[in-house]
């Protein structure tokens, strides 16, 4: 759901960029407090994996495709604040090297996927952890995708690209399907990581790292 240039007007692009800069600066401050040597290459690998996985579009209903966003996966492995930084790095490289997501829309794409997606997924996972960890990861993944889609819809509506209610319903309904793919892939990757390197996917692991 990388927004290309042309869908957002200048005030919305600028506002979203300002919010993103604020949120990512806060994330940098939070990560500074806990970052250890071991976390750094792990962030690099995680970003690389999310980039690779985002290249794999899987078909969903009605001639549409979707791909992993990776926000919830990043939250599970490195915690929410480092996850924001990881996702932001991926989005910047995709924008600058591949024109995947517009340059003027970069702030909005960071806001939707790296900030709103990550935070909503993290909160949803925390709120549902009492069910089971797997269920919480699935719900968090789904929420992260749907929340990012809703934010993108709101930005396009404020930019007068499309009427609010219609674009919101359309974006949320298609991403509700893509979000289930996000949930399944995230659970598969986390259970694989649990087998090969359990210490990085345990709750609170990022603090221990």
């Amino acid at each position: 759901m990388h927004i290309p240039d042309g869908f957002l007007n200048i005030p919305v692009s600028a506002g979203a960029a300002a919010l993103s800069i604020g949120a990512v600066s806060l994330a940098v401050k939070k990560v500074q407090k806990t970052i250890e040597d071991r976390l750094v290459p792990l962030m690099g690998v995680l970003a690389a994996f999310i980039f690779a996985a985002q290249m794999f579009n899987f078909p969903v209903a009605g001639g549409t495709s979707g791909h992993l966003l990776g926000g919830m996966l990043a939250v599970v492995v490195v915690g929410p604040w480092a996850a924001m930084i990881v996702l932001t790095c991926v989005l910047i490289v995709q924008c600058l090297l591949f024109q995947d997501g517009g340059l003027l829309a970069l702030g909005a794409n960071v806001l939707n996927m790296a900030v709103i997606g990550v935070l909503c997924g993290w909160v949803a996972k925390k709120a549902t952890n009492f069910l089971s960890r797997t269920a919480a990861i699935f719900i968090g993944s789904w929420i992260s995708v749907v929340a990012a889609a809703a934010a993108a819809a709101a930005e396009m509506a404020i930019s007068d690209t499309a009427p609010f209610a219609t674009v919101l319903v359309a974006m949320v309904s298609v991403h509700a399907i893509i979000g289930t793919g996000e949930g399944v892939i995230t659970i598969l990757v986390v259970s694989f990581l649990k087998r090969v390197k359990p210490e990085i996917v345990e709750d609170g692991a990022c603090r221990a790292l």
Binding site: M1, D5, G6, F7, F58, G63, T64, S65
Partner: peptide, 23 residues
């Protein structure tokens, strides 16, 4: 990888605002 349009592209084309994309 599927070459189908992604969620946002699909919404843009169905709602008829994909031509706003500057490219």
């Amino acid at each position: 990888a599927s070459s189908y349009p992604d969620g946002l592209e699909q919404v843009a084309s169905k709602m008829g605002f994909e031509n706003k994309m500057s490219g």
